[in-house]
Design a protein around this nucleic acid. Structure first.
Length: 195
DNA sequence: CTATTGATGGTC
DNA sequence: ACCATCAATAGG
């Protein structure tokens, strides 16, 4: 079993963390059940100057976690129905976070349940706002490193659903495992690759 | 395959 | 009023 990602992993720019998270395993332990998904799609949100980032609103009830210490879960409700899982990063108060948008079920998830799409992933993994502010270096919700030597091919695109964010809307801050079929959108939108 | 629409709730 | 979504439905 690969090592749990520690605090130092999260103390970096959201764009760096977002890319590094592709291919890692997200683990949620709840009682006897352990659910694991391999992350295939992420997006970076880069603080108050990024109009697509919730940190643009400043310190509010919701953004308290986002503006809190790195390496914690930031879980928020979108469209009244779906819990979106994010990882806080860079530094306390920076407002940097990575939205995990999709992945491939590994274990503990009922056969046929898909994890592509932020809403589906949250639901399949049993992640709700009750887990907001949970420390990701703990034993309930955490990440495990990629297998040694694993170097996924990563495609880079603009983020989804942020057309309102002006100049920042077109930034290539979405990262997808190019070989995975478990991203929320098809490859035709890819505008580059790397990693 | 694409396009459209309704469900739903917290923040601003 | 807005929104970092999804499922069901209708149409080509």
């Amino acid at each position: 079993m690969e090592a749990k990602l520690d605090r130092s992993f999260f103390l970096r720019d959201a764009r760096v963390v977002a890319r590094a998270l592709i291919g890692t395993h997200l683990v949620h332990v709840h009682g006897q059940t352990e659910r694991v998904v391999r992350i295939a799609e992420t997006e970076a949100y880069c603080g108050p100057r990024d109009l697509a980032c919730h940190a643009r609103a400043g310190l509010t009830k919701r953004t308290k976690t986002l503006l809190g210490p790195p390496g914690h879960a930031y879980v928020f409700l979108i469209y009244g129905m779906y819990d979106c899982f994010n990882v806080t990063c860079r530094g306390e108060g920076s407002g940097h976070a990575v939205l995990v948008r999709g992945g491939e079920p590994v274990s503990g998830i009922e056969a046929g349940i898909r994890c592509d799409g932020p809403g589906r992933l949250g639901r399949a993994m049993g992640i709700t706002r009750a887990l907001d502010r949970v420390d990701l270096t703990g034993d309930v919700l955490f990440l495990r490193a990629r297998a040694k030597g694993e170097r996924p091919t990563i495609a880079v695109t603009a983020r989804v659903g942020v057309a309102y964010a002006g100049e920042r809307a077109d930034k290539p801050w979405r990262f997808v495992d190019a070989k995975s079929r478990h991203a929320s959108r098809p490859s035709k939108r890819f505008i580059g690759r790397g990693g």
